[in-house]
Design a binder for these strands. Sequence first.
DNA 1: AGGAGTTTGTGAACGCGAGAACAAAATCCA
DNA 2: TGGATTTTGTTCTCGCGTTCACAAACTCCT
Lengths: 236, 236
Amino acid sequence: MTHMRPSATPPDDVDRGIPEATIARLPIYLRALTGLAERGMRTASSEQLAAATGVNSAKLRKDLSYLGSYGTRGVGYDVEYLRYQIAREIGVTEDWPVLIVGIGNLGQALSNYGGFSSRGFRIVALLDGDPARVGEQLGDLVISSMDDLDSIVAREAVSIAVIATPGSAAQGVVDRLVAAGVTSILNFAPSVLTVPPGVDVRKVDLSIELQILAYHEQRKAHGGTQLAVSDEVVTL
Amino acid sequence: MTHMRPSATPPDDVDRGIPEATIARLPIYLRALTGLAERGMRTASSEQLAAATGVNSAKLRKDLSYLGSYGTRGVGYDVEYLRYQIAREIGVTEDWPVLIVGIGNLGQALSNYGGFSSRGFRIVALLDGDPARVGEQLGDLVISSMDDLDSIVAREAVSIAVIATPGSAAQGVVDRLVAAGVTSILNFAPSVLTVPPGVDVRKVDLSIELQILAYHEQRKAHGGTQLAVSDEVVTL
DNA sequence: AGGAGTTTGTGAACGCGAGAACAAAATCCA
DNA sequence: TGGATTTTGTTCTCGCGTTCACAAACTCCT
């Protein structure tokens, strides 16, 4: 793909503009392929991958076609080859250094989570705003002060950070992260973050997920139209 | 809204068929309104709410219009009234009992998280498959055995559960939860879950979120088309 | 009272993503 | 070799969600 394709394709080539919805599914395919590879499967059809990922097979094929023609008609996809191509597309053939800010319950849980290294990430620093926590050992890392943020970002070439602080602290932390050069943020704090253009933020919010479940649960409960929502919820 | 609107609306009334995308935003509005109420704001325009939530104001108005006409033209929305209406629509005017399965790092972090009670949920039980953990005290709860699942679900009328087990255990746990009567599941385990119809599953996957960030980060890095992914791993 | 200013609620246009369906390409088998 | 079978890559259609834009409805001020 370094060489030009001569034909009708416009100058900006193949992998320009992969739909966001597809990108969000590539990690799912990647994980499924890793699983299949571990179980010794050498090749997989779109139907098999669909079963393993819970994604419609036509959608899956279309997703993969955005990356290029990596399948073989009549055969399927070479598991290892496709796995590598997806990893390359996502950009996780090598580990990204990640830092975590806010070492409370959640921050600790994240720092102990082992699944990162196998999925393209390596936690290089833990930061907390509470001076009393600085210096504390956690696994093989020591909690650093927020004052060391700039030097850590520079030294480790960090571009991705995770925020696990209370909501009230989040925006301040984001501002400092952005100033230090971080350009991708995964936010666990329950607050809306404002960032300059060029910085990506993704949000994970437990309460929101539960509330969405609660909405549907409520509909299941009093099955028909609304029934007697009036005074305290009846629950049945 | 208890009284009929005389005009053209079809028999199955107002809140039939709120779009899924809207439902996913209602919790965001709810949180913003709670914040505004705490700061003493009595009324808020769609522009103000848009600023507080990061949602486009037209989209926000349309979302709210699915719930009914709760605003006043020229004025805006009554903060407290709208907050209650959204809470009622979601179904969080009273707390839902929730149980957590898998008390590892993440499960513990979740059980310690204080934000639940204010957002419509109450953790009523912690379960773990490891008999050695059973009986352990955590906050004001004691870890229960999986064997007690049925009786707990029945006693506490649980319909929502959180899975924080390793991926390998998740499907087995889900099957037991469903058998016990749980119909909504929030899954933190990195695996695809199969459930019978009528059961809702939502998935939160840290690695996937990070990988989506990594994809965009990679694009930022070598701005143009691909540049030099080459060295080693040539494989192709 | 009436006009100017605000802000909601919604109709209409548009773009994106999902899924069905099928032609093209490869394998397999007689 | 050639036909049957499998499976990909892609075209087409449809529905949903986002956004614009504006009329309707309300307040405020003179």
